[in-house]
Structures are given as structure tokens and as C-alpha cells.
Amino acid sequence: MNKTSNPQDLAQIAKRVRREIVSMITAAKSGHPGGSLSATEILVTLYFDVMKHDPANPHWADRDRFILGKGHACPVLYSVMAECGYTPLDKLNTFRQLGSIYQGHPDVRFIPALEASTGSLGEGLSLGLGMACAARLNGSPSRAFVVLGDGEIQEGQIWEAAMFGAFHKLDNCVCIVDYNKIQLDGFTKDIMDVEPLADKWRAFGWHTIEVDGHSIEALQAAFAEAAATKGKPTVLIAHTIKGKGVSFMENNPKFHGTAPTAAECEQALKELA
């Protein structure tokens, strides 16, 4: 795969990924576009610039680990992994069909290069921290990157994990909260407000960076700061827009878990051209 630190190149990849997300969910007639589109720059920056990994050697012991806590957003993960060369690009449109490797939620039985089967919210951060512990024991430079949803962090287990990460000084774990302000039933502030969010993470002992989750340069700078931060784990609170890039999906709770119609897909692909 061709890694790059050039923000323009990364932005081009992000645009392709967005198109693939919209197309695969349309083909499947179900799935979660909103949270896939909000996390696109985060995953593209990680997989194409920040993380050390090798699609030709997916089980390389010292690879960095990626865990999508909010497993329902797997279209963005599938698209990025396919763009990297882990899995076939031309099969993305089999998403959610019987026998497809692109299951409704990430499933290691179907894609062994995945680090975790997720879909039940709230468990990814603990997994990532466990992997970070193992890396430290092994003297490995491997780091764990975990993407969580802002609704997902309402799970109590997230805060148990947060305490664990700071207590064990796991500076080789980076958590990214995709703070798109919307969950399944509506706006996060109306379902179970998570504010003051940065204060919460700071109080739990994490190095906390607030960042524009759609600015590749800002994300690159934040990941560099995370790498340089020793003695405590880092969390990026990535301010994002759910449905980013498609006008009628942006900030619209309806597109948490609704597939676009064929006409909507056409319109979306035009906007993403």
C-alpha cells in the first residue's frame, strides 16, 4: 500500500471512501451511513499515515492495533481496509449479504485481519487497553487506537476502562471519540448528555486533545502530540458532523441507521464527486 502524509492525498482518499460508504449501504439497503461518514478522516489518517501496519502481513506482531468500538460504522472500516489492500474493493457492494466477508458489524471470523468483533457498544476501549498492556509486556512498540462513538461512551464500561488506562499509565493507547453529537434516537444532549466531555477525560487522568475531526492536518498534529505524550494515555475528542459530506445526511439523526434510496445515493455521489 502507498502510505502518505500529504493532506491533499489523504483528502482524496477520504473522498473515495465516502463514495464507497454511500454505495455499499445503498446496495445493502440497510446500514449506518451517519457515523461512517463522520469518522472518515479519522480512519483515513490512521490507516494511511499514522499507524504502523502491513496489509501483506496482517498478523505482524509489532503492528499497531485498530479497534472500531462503534462497530455499526464498519462501512468506513471496510472501505479503508479495502483501499489499503486487506480485502477486495470490488466486493464492498456485497455488504450485509449472506456469505459476504463484509458483515453487518465487524466479524473476525470473516476478516481475520480485523483486531476485534465489535457491535455491542462499550467494549472496544477495554480491548485496546488489554492489547496495549500486552505490547508493553512484550517490549513491543505496538500501539492501540480505539474509535468510540459519543453515544457509546454512555456505557459504564468505558469509564471503568478510562480509569484502568490512566492507572496503568498506558501511553501506548490512543482513544478517539467521534463526537458527532448524535446517537440512535436523536441528539446526544437530549438522550444522555455527555458534557462536559473534555473535563471528564481530564478528570480520569487522560491527556485530552480537542480537535476538528474533519481536518486532516489537525488530526495529524493531534496524533503526533499523542505519540509524544508519555506516562498517560491520550484521548482525542474529535468534533465531527454526523453524515459529513452529504448535505441531506449532515447533522440529521435519520441517517444514523437508514440506508439512502437509489435517488438519494445518486445525489450523494454527485456531492462527493
Binding site: 457498544l121 462499550g122 453515544g151 454512555q154 456505557e155 440512535l184 434516537d185 438522550i191 444522555m192
Partner: peptide, 26 residues
């Protein structure tokens, strides 16, 4: 727990908001 539209408890929430407790994903 953030699934009222899927479980159909949103019907109850609409008619009796004061007796409906949104717990978030927890």
C-alpha cells in the same frame, strides 16, 4: 437505552414523557 424507535417504546415516550426515563446507551 437509546433504542426507543426500534423497541416501539417511543410511542409511550410521546404520550407520557414524564414517565419515560431515557438512560442512554447504558
Amino acid at each position: 437505552a437509546d433504542l426507543s424507535k426500534s423497541t416501539y417504546t417511543h410511542l409511550f415516550a410521546k404520550e407520557f414523557p414524564e414517565r419515560f426515563f431515557s438512560c442512554g446507551i447504558a
